[in-house]
Simulated scan of single mutants.
Amino acid sequence: MKLTHLHTLSGHQNPVYALANSTQTGLFYSAGNDKGVVEWSLDTMAFVKVLVPVQSSVYAMHIYGERLIIAQRSGVILVFDLSEQRVIAQLAFHQKGVFDLKTIAHKEELLSTGEDGQVAVWSLKDFSLLYHFPVLENTVRVIAISKDEKEVALGCKDGLIRIYNSDDYGLLRVLEGHKFAVTALQYSPEGSRLISGSRDAQLKIWGLPDYELVNNIPAHMFSVYAVAFHPTEPYFATCSQDKSIKLWGASDYKLYKILSLEKQTEGHRHSVNKLLWSPDGRYLISTGDDRQVMVWGFEA
């Protein structure tokens, strides 16, 4: 297995918080504390264009069909149509920053959440607000959707993971284990586990369907900001406030690779905020507070 630095893409003027793949092969998007969403090419390893200007920092992006959904610190969510190259909807409900977005495809619903502790449920047909419910008094940081789309996991500032039924958004169970805010959450592609990361620098592995805690990994020195499973190979990557990216085995939980300036590899100079695998699994893309977007080549 190899993970090799290929290119560093510069141009952002401020920290970068969000990454998303395009529906077009070889393109992806980045955004953060800048004035716009940037489109990049993996084929040329170069800047393509500023896709859409934004009024406030972008904390999350999510792709659904030909729509790029953009969550902002202002609470406003933009829906950008990639085929029409224009904003087709502005979703206003949240009074504070929106930290994550996910879709439930079979229901054609978009979920949004963030600093106000509320989850909003939107129709992907007409972008109307269908439902909203409070989760806690302060921040919900991250959303994960189970493989069968029947369960929604929310990583919360109080260190708890709350699992909801996607049919009626009823609370199913609460997972206790992390000491501090849950900042990363991802169901495994085959649907047998949920992995959570936190400000306590730990990774916790929860076995489905009962969410029993099956493993705890002291993964990083500081907050874990993303967990990203490879699309086809049995690995997942994590990134952290400690400036490192780590690659783990998805079945043995063994640490296979550390990308960090401290380990004399290429790496980020500040907190690494987001990771993204290209759909074909050939590239891992990372970004963070150093304003750089780094592209890594992957070979199993």
Rank of each mutant, 00 (worst) to 15 (best):
A219E: 00
H230C: 05
M221Q: 14
P234Y: 03
L194P: 03
G207I: 12
S188I: 09
I195K: 03
E212W: 13
P209T: 08
I205G: 04
P234V: 06
Y225K: 07
R193H: 15
G197R: 03
L203T: 09
R199C: 08
V214C: 12
H220Y: 05
S192T: 06
R199D: 12
D200A: 05
S188H: 06
A228K: 14
K204W: 07
N216W: 11
N216R: 15
R199W: 10
L213W: 04
A226T: 05
F222G: 06
D200Y: 05
G197Y: 00
V224E: 03
G191N: 01
D200S: 07
H230Q: 02
S198G: 01
P189N: 07
S223H: 11
A228S: 15
A219L: 01
D210I: 12
F229Q: 03
N215F: 14
A226D: 08
I217G: 06
V214G: 12
P209I: 08
K204D: 07
L203I: 10
V227G: 07
E212P: 13
H220N: 01
M221V: 11
M221S: 15
V224K: 04
G207L: 13
R199G: 11
G207Y: 13
N216P: 11
P209Y: 06
P231L: 11
P189F: 10
Y225Q: 08
N215E: 15
L213C: 01
F222N: 07
H230F: 02
D210P: 12
A228L: 13
R199P: 07
N216E: 15
Y225P: 02
P209L: 10
E212C: 15
R199K: 13
G191R: 03
Q202P: 12
P231T: 12
A201I: 00
R199T: 11
P234T: 06
N216V: 14
S198P: 01
V214K: 13
S198I: 00
N216M: 14
W206A: 08
E212I: 15
A226Y: 04
Y211Q: 13
I205H: 06
I217N: 00
I217R: 01
L194M: 07
F222W: 14
S188C: 05
M221H: 13
T232D: 09
P209S: 05
W206M: 08
S188Y: 03
P209E: 05
G197C: 07
E233R: 04
Y211M: 11
K204P: 10
V224H: 05
H220K: 01
K204C: 11
H220P: 00
S198M: 02
K204R: 14
F222S: 11
Y225H: 09
A219K: 01
V227L: 08
F229N: 02
S223D: 09
L208T: 04
S196W: 00
D200C: 07
G197F: 00
L213R: 03
M221G: 15
S198N: 02
L208E: 05
